[in-house]
Design a protein around this nucleic acid. Sequence first.
DNA 1: CGGCATTTGTTCGTATGTATC
DNA 2: AGATACATACGAACAAATGCC
Lengths: 241, 241
Amino acid sequence: MEVDMEKRYKEIYQSIKNDIFQRKYKVGEKLPSENEFCKLYNASRGTIHKVLNLLAEEGLVNSMHGKGVFVLESSSIDFSFGKLVSFKEASESSGKQFVTRVEKFETITIDKTLQEKTGLPEGKEVYKIYRIRSLDGDSLIFDINYFLKDLITDLPPEIAEGSIYQYIEEQLNLKIGFAKRIIMTEPATASDKRYLDMSGFNFVIVVKNLVFLTDGMQFEYTESHHIPDRFVFTDFARRWL
Amino acid sequence: MEVDMEKRYKEIYQSIKNDIFQRKYKVGEKLPSENEFCKLYNASRGTIHKVLNLLAEEGLVNSMHGKGVFVLESSSIDFSFGKLVSFKEASESSGKQFVTRVEKFETITIDKTLQEKTGLPEGKEVYKIYRIRSLDGDSLIFDINYFLKDLITDLPPEIAEGSIYQYIEEQLNLKIGFAKRIIMTEPATASDKRYLDMSGFNFVIVVKNLVFLTDGMQFEYTESHHIPDRFVFTDFARRWL
DNA sequence: CGGCATTTGTTCGTATGTATC
DNA sequence: AGATACATACGAACAAATGCC
């Protein structure tokens, strides 16, 4: 019923985040104190504290005991890819235009070998999709997706050209919980050489993603093959013992 | 005064984390409810909730609204390198023996070019250190460190063979706040070819680390050059809008 | 189907501790 | 010493999802 019944702390989080991006709070500046935010948003200090912690984990601000909370630099520019975002979201937020071409869209069954490789349950049917991502005419990324048909039912092939995640969340109303990611290098396969502009390279950067719903069920395994030249991964980490 | 006055939530966090690694709470099992943990640790629900959230962010557990909190698999095996841990910590937790060889230890001044490359302030003096990390006799990683002399005072060269971070935290009593990390590939330099067993590869995986103290001052820039073959980076991400 | 207990998620108010100025 | 600001902790209440009867 209440569709836009948003949690208070999420509203405040978005609001402050927005103000940082809009340079209302400038880099290096001190944010209003927690107590001032309480009045501003008519919320308790606990809620404000929680919000500021979220912003700190994300690398947007740095809070200093006894002094205040300060805006960190470069928060807007380097799109934080260290989070779990889909390719489309990442490219949009960085303002660049990616083009997606679907090269394969078929249904296969997970056998023993694929089970070990993907983590998906043996015997289950999956969509296997090949997609090539291009930027300014250069084919940069070759994606191999496996989606469990049990969970991602009736995936229309034309969706694959857009955001499959948007379809999963908005149409199927499934909630993505967490993902494990592994980054490594592998020798370029015949497919890599066919689909990507390898220009001399004989290996690719492979990003393997195992994605799970909130109930802990894995619904996806994806390998993104990147041309070494153009691969960049950025991350923000906060130490904590 | 009170040296070992530990925060309650950190104690509980370590305790539960330990119990998970010790398999007291097994993979797939439901943890005691928050209210049960309250009695177990004589703490409030807020504190317990906070601890469980930390464990969830780390990828050790998955909490499900209305059902409980469940232990995720592979929590112990894959040493989570997605966090900000030093090389020594990571290798120790994975049970393998790394050997560090110091190839260079000198003091230089940050010029304009280095300032742009490292983010460290122009005109300041830094320790520049070359270190080669070997595992089972294979030279796998070539580290180039820059430490601000203003902050990391009197770094003894022999420390470089061990953990510089331990020295920074325990001897200098400085607190590390956060780090920005960038992973990319670059052509192998002459130094790379000299120090690493490149066996045919003509490029390296470069992990660039910019590390800051809690007060937001950057004190380090480090480039880790990895042999493509042996590079693996693992990560855990939780979706959150 | 409804009702009820259990469990996690969110929020508030309050108090105390600790760091900074 | 006092004021300000963030960090931790407790207790209470209600919301929301789940599961059982």
